[in-house]
Design a binder for these strands. Structure first.
Length: 430
DNA sequence: TCATTCATAAACATAT
DNA sequence: AATATGTTTATGAATG
C-alpha cells in the first residue's frame, strides 16, 4: 500500500523552504515563545500613596488598592463594550514602522505559527475559532500565505494539535455544519503568548493583546491606564504595599472568578487533554493560593509532553495560576486601547467567519455543550449578571478590607504592646 | 557539542 | 469517495 493520497491539498506542494525570505530567517525575527514568562511578581504598581510610611498600619494602601481593585474588577466594564478586538494595524505602531502584515505581504510573517494562531483566535469575537477560520484570518492578514505553498495549513494544524497553548473545544452537539472543533487559547498560557508577542519587533502587534485573564475570567477587557501614571505608581511602590496589594489582588481575583463563575451556566468543555491534562485549564485558581507549587502540578517533562516551548512551563504555569501574573501582564499591556469601532465593519477586523461558526457560537450560547461566548457589553443579561457579581464582589471586598483592617489593628496592638513591654523592661533595668 | 525551538513534511486516523 | 480536520512522527535549520 502506498502512501495515502488525496488527503489534503497540502500534499501537492513544493517545499516552502524554498521561499524563505532572505534576511528574515526563521527564528531571527520570529515570535519565539519565551522560555519564561517575564517576571510576574505583582508589582502592586497601582498603589500610589506616595507616602514614606512603610508601616503596615498605614492603611493608605488599603484604600488605594481597594479603589484599584474596583477599577480592575468592576471599572473595566466601561472601557469597552465589545470584545477587545484590537487593531493590529492600529495607531499604536510607531511611526515609520511597517506593520508586520505589510512586511509580510511578500515575505514571511515575523511570527511563529503559534503566535499567528494566537492572534487569530484573539481576534475572534468568541476567542475560539475553527481551523478554517484560523486559516482565513492568517490569509487575510498575511497575504504571504496566499502565495505560499499550502503546507502552511498543515503547520497550523500541527501547531494547534501539538502546541500546549491551544485547546480544542467541542462544538455544539447536533450541529453538523462545520467540521472539526473550535480552538481556543489556553488561558494558562496566555501570558506566555503575550510575552512572546511582546518580544516581536513590531510593537503594533501588541495592539492585539487582550489583557490576560485568569482562567475563568472569560470577559477579558482592556485596562486603561496611562503609562505615565503607571510609571509614577511603580516609582512609589513599596514592599509592604506589594504584599498587601498582592493579597488583595489574589483575594479579588478569586472572588471575581467565583462571581464570574456564577454567571456561567457551564464551563467550557475542553475536548481532550492531549499534551497534558487540561482539565484544570478552565478551573479556578485556588483562592488566595500564594504558593507557587500548588500541588496539582505537573509533571512536565519536555519529552513527555512532546510540544513546543515546554521548557519553563512550570514557572509560568504556576504564575498564571496564581492570578498574579495576570496583574503583571495587564500592567504590561494595559496601555493598549481597543479599536472596537472597527469591529466587523470591514469584514476583516473582528473577524467573522464566512461560514457557520458564528451561528454556532450563538447556538452555543443557548446551548447544549456548555460553550459560552464572552458576554458582550450590550448584552443585557450579561450586564445584569455582572451587576450582581459586582455587588457580590463589593460585599466580599468590604469583608476582605475589614479583615485586613482587623489584621492591621492587631499589628498595631502588637506594636504598641511591644513598645510598652520594651519600655517596661527598660524601666525595670534602670 | 548539545538542547531547545520551530518549521516543514508526511503518514495516518477520523469526521463530515 | 472526497475532503477537512486532527494526531503523531521525523527531520533539519537556527539559536543559545
Amino acid at each position: 500500500m502506498g502512501p495515502v493520497t488525496g488527503m489534503t491539498p497540502d500534499k501537492n506542494i513544493e517545499s516552502p523552504t524554498a521561499e524563505k525570505v532572505p534576511g528574515l530567517s526563521q527564528t531571527e525575527n520570529m515570535g519565539s515563545l519565551p522560555e519564561e514568562v517575564g517576571a510576574a511578581r505583582p508589582k502592586a504598581s497601582m498603589v500610589d500613596n506616595g507616602a514614606t510610611d512603610e508601616e503596615l498600619t498605614n492603611l493608605n494602601w488599603l484604600h488605594e488598592s481597594t479603589n484599584l481593585l474596583n477599577n480592575f474588577s468592576l471599572g473595566s466594564e466601561g472601557v469597552s463594550a465589545g470584545s477587545p478586538l484590537y487593531d493590529i494595524e492600529g495607531d499604536l505602531s510607531p511611526s515609520g514602522c511597517q506593520t508586520p502584515e505589510k512586511l509580510s505581504a511578500s515575505s514571511k510573517p515575523p511570527y511563529s505559527f503559534s503566535l499567528l494562531i494566537y492572534m487569530a483566535i484573539e481576534h475572534s469575537p468568541n476567542k475560539c475559532l475553527p481551523v478554517k477560520d484560523i486559516y482565513s484570518w492568517i490569509l487575510d492578514r498575511f497575504p504571504y500565505f496566499s502565495t505560499a505553498p499550502t503546507g502552511w495549513k498543515n503547520s497550523v494544524r500541527h501547531n494547534l494539535s501539538l502546541n500546549k497553548y491551544f485547546q480544542k473545544v467541542e462544538r455544539s452537539h447536533g450541529k453538523v455544519n462545520g467540521k472539526g472543533s473550535l480552538w481556543c487559547v489556553d488561558p494558562e498560557y496566555k501570558p506566555s503568548l503575550i510575552q512572546a508577542l511582546k518580544k516581536q519587533p513590531f510593537s503594533s502587534a501588541l495592539a492585539l493583546y487582550t489583557p490576560p485573564t485568569s482562567p475563568t475570567s472569560v470577559s477579558s477587557r482592556p485596562y486603561v491606564l496611562t503609562s505615565a501614571s503607571r510609571r509614577k505608581q511603580i516609582h512609589y511602590v513599596k514592599d509592604s504595599d506589594i504584599d498587601a496589594a498582592t493579597a488583595m489582588m489574589l483575594l479579588n481575583s478569586s472572588i471575581k472568578e467565583e462571581a464570574l463563575d456564577r454567571q456561567k451556566p457551564q464551563p467550557l468543555k475542553v475536548v481532550l487533554p492531549k499534551k497534558r491534562s487540561y482539565a484544570s485549564a478552565f478551573k479556578h485558581c485556588p483562592p488566595l493560593s500564594l504558593q507557587e507549587n500548588d500541588g496539582e502540578v505537573i509533571n512536565i517533562d519536555p519529552k513527555e509532553d512532546h510540544n513546543y516551548s515546554a521548557s519553563g512551563g512550570d514557572s509560568q504555569r504556576c504564575e498564571s495560576r496564581s492570578s498574579v501574573s495576570s496583574l503583571s501582564s495587564v500592567e504590561e499591556v494595559y496601555e493598549f486601547i481597543p479599536k472596537n469601532s472597527r469591529t466587523g465593519s470591514d469584514g476583516s477586523e473582528g473577524f467573522h467567519s464566512e461560514d457557520d461558526t458564528d451561528i454556532d457560537y450563538e447556538e452555543d450560547t443557548l446551548g447544549d455543550n456548555g460553550y459560552v461566548p464572552q458576554p458582550s457589553g450590550n448584552d443585557l443579561h450579561g450586564s445584569k449578571l455582572r451587576k450582581e457579581a459586582s455587588q457580590d464582589i463589593d460585599e466580599e471586598l468590604k469583608e476582605a478590607a475589614g479583615s485586613l483592617l482587623h489584621l492591621a489593628g492587631i499589628r498595631t496592638c502588637l506594636d504598641s504592646l511591644l513598645k510598652t513591654a520594651k519600655a517596661q523592661s527598660h524601666k525595670h533595668r534602670k
